[in-house]
Write a protein that binds this DNA or RNA. Structure first.
Lengths: 388, 388
DNA sequence: CTTATTATGTTAGGCAAGTTAACAAAAAAA
DNA sequence: TTTTTTTGTTAACTTGCCTAACATAATAAG
């Protein structure tokens, strides 16, 4: 056993102190009266709990605020012992990194664009992550407190202890990158991370149950049910690229065929093949197609609409299984407002009532999501409470 | 406000007393030492808690047991105040009714076979339920304690307060049946109930996450995630009859088409249409087909295997969305052991690792499931703790 | 048949974590 | 300067659990 302090500086905090810390870690700094009100704690209890937390450095007073009348109220936020986390979106085109306190005050950030030639090469990504982390560590300010956690969003399945680990690419991220000793690492699928971000900061802030559907190079889904991510036994929940397809009387489905059919590449191949002479040169890529559709090109718009119908059918399948009530569209294509109406129309026609919204968080969704997860994990660790 | 005693005779029980009651309601009667051991409660705490519960009649001593040596240990189980529940499977062919204590000791049971001509007529079912409940109430024994809850499993979606209530048939059950005053009613979809039963008593006892797929007249799924049913915004989670189908390049999916294609009726139509002259008379119904397949009839077996492949594809779709790790096959056709191997092979080929098992609970699965749910609800109510 | 051993249950006393009530401190309003 | 209002602290009490010690009821041993 390690010394208990290292993993959990707050081994034996009172329940009230824990709940106060949790609330402060959640977001905005708060005054004592606000905290007491929110948590239904009496003023004496607040005094005792804050004293406990301040003693450990888990909480610090950052000022006072004057109401209309009466004594000033003290304002608190997580203190230096609470430390900071590194969140990394290890995507196939970019590596995005954010360093922040556990109440998500940004301390540092960097973006590294991978050479296009190395798309999807796991080793290159791992090397980039290693370099960015190393560079970050040299700039660490002692005022940030200890590094508590590194969160990494990866574009592959992430399995828990009981799943089929062999078939994942999740370990590739460590091929060239070794995390600093004694700093735990949280891995999470990038689509799931985006779902978390939509839930915490984005268009799904008001819903604790919804499906985030990413449509871009590949397609994938993140299922948020009652505020919790559904990961599945093999980390494969939401791998809708594997929906049975084609599925029709007589034909036999092929594994992963939907991904090939619906991904940007397969889609654009069909678009280019079907592009009529009179409409001019076929679009160079998906972004080009979307731009032309947005400008009113009828041919482009027809293709986009056709694609949206396919997406609507897939969304209907997801609704038929999980009935989330809300679907958020995101990703390279999914982020376009052109898709939403058709997707919504088709999904609602084929299945049960769903609201369809378009993501508002841009490319930062994934980093923000993994940051959120890393912070949550850190709080659990500090308070000695591990969630599942 | 009603008097608090009626809804919750245990308004202010200590946490330890609540946990003891919960454990006793769970199942087998237990001795004090066993309970204390299981719940990590000291003997003095046990004394106090049992005294509280016994006072209210929520718990009763039913005997003593002698170990190898030492004093006898007292055995307890839920007492008369805990009361009893009525569980009803309001199916389209049978109405099954069970009366039991909240620790699920059967007090009374009856089965009513609906006239075949009235299949699916909601009003007839409602009338049958009303009659069976009335008949049951006349036989109630005062020793059973108060009737705490009526649970009804219905073959339709069941929506919560925020869902789209208009499109459900859930209210039909009350067209001719009015529950006794002051007795709360729990409605639940019959497939979900079967899933609960498999989880509590059946083949999925060891798994808190799995999908129950019912294949019979209609097809449906119950999703158990982390020990909790996934119901969905519109109570439509698991309505896999609405998976997008046919889904292939060029063809447009039709709402609910899978149900027509995969249900017993559609399936048997195809079987009969394709039945070759030399194999003799076409099978009369699905049971006949299954019987012949079991006896080695190659034609019958080929049809069954083909059907199992289709089911495998659907299971693969569910796995791709929820990745439950375990799928239990049940229902009229699904209960046959002939299907499992092919379903498993196809599902695993098309998607991620899933274990496929065949249901062991027969036609009682649904009643047992709604009974379990009614008992859980009752315990929550008695302890003044409502879950979601 | 008495005595030792052991498991069960109760009594006494203590502690942790909250509460309410009353008081002290710090600010604006009268 | 005094009053009023909000914030924070101190004192005393309550609840719900605990441990330690004792009482009870059974078998095992002498």
């Amino acid at each position: 056993m390690r010394p208990p302090f290292e993993s959990s500086p707050a081994g034996s905090l009172t329940a009230s102190a824990k709940s106060i810390f949790r609330l402060l870690a959640e977001g905005d700094p708060s005054t004592r009266p606000q905290l007491g009100e929110a948590l239904n704690l009496s003023r004496p209890t607040m005094s005792a709990a804050i004293a406990e937390l301040e003693q450990l450095g888990l909480v610090a007073k950052i000022g006072e605020v004057q109401g209309l009348i009466g004594r000033k109220a003290a304002i608190y936020r997580p203190g230096p012992t609470a430390g900071h986390v590194i969140a990394i979106d290890a995507g196939s085109t970019h590596v995005r990194l954010r360093v922040s306190t556990i109440d998500r005050r940004l301390l540092h950030s960097r973006v590294y664009r991978l050479p296009a030639s190395q798309l999807l090469l796991g080793e290159e990504i791992s090397r980039a992550v290693a370099e960015e982390v190393a560079a970050t560590l040299t700039e660490t300010d002692p005022g940030w407190g200890p590094l508590r956690m590194i969160g990494i969003a990866v574009p592959s399945r992430v399995v828990g202890p009981q799943g089929d680990r062999s078939a994942t690419r999740q370990e590739e991220i460590f091929s060239c990158f070794e995390p600093p000793a004694n700093v735990p690492v949280v891995l999470e699928n990038n689509v799931n991370c985006a779902a978390v971000a939509e839930r915490s900061y984005g268009i799904a802030k008001d819903s604790e149950t919804f499906a985030y559907v990413q449509i871009g190079l590949k397609i994938g889904m993140g299922l948020m049910l009652g505020g919790r991510l559904l990961r599945g036994r093999n980390g494969a929940a939401g791998e809708i690229g594997h929906l049975a397809f084609p599925m029709a009387d007589g034909s036999k489905p092929i594994a992963g065929e939907i991904e090939r059919y619906m991904g940007t590449e397969g889609f654009m191949q069909r678009v280019v093949a079907a592009w009529p002479e009179p409409s001019g040169k076929a679009p160079a890529d998906a972004a080009d197609l979307m731009a032309r559709a947005g400008e009113g090109c009828a041919t482009a718009l027809a293709h986009v609409t056709r694609h949206a119908e396919d997406i609507g059918a897939i969304v209907a399948s997801c609704v038929s299984v999980a009935d989330p009530g809300l679907v958020v569209l995101g990703g390279g294509m999914g982020g376009s407002p052109l898709l939403m109406p058709t997707v919504s129309e088709v999904a609602n026609r084929l299945s049960y009532p769903v609201e369809v919204r378009t993501s508002t968080l841009g490319q930062d969704a994934t980093v923000l999501g993994i940051e959120k997860l890393a912070c949550e994990q850190t709080v659990d660790l500090l308070l000695g409470e591990s969630r599942d």
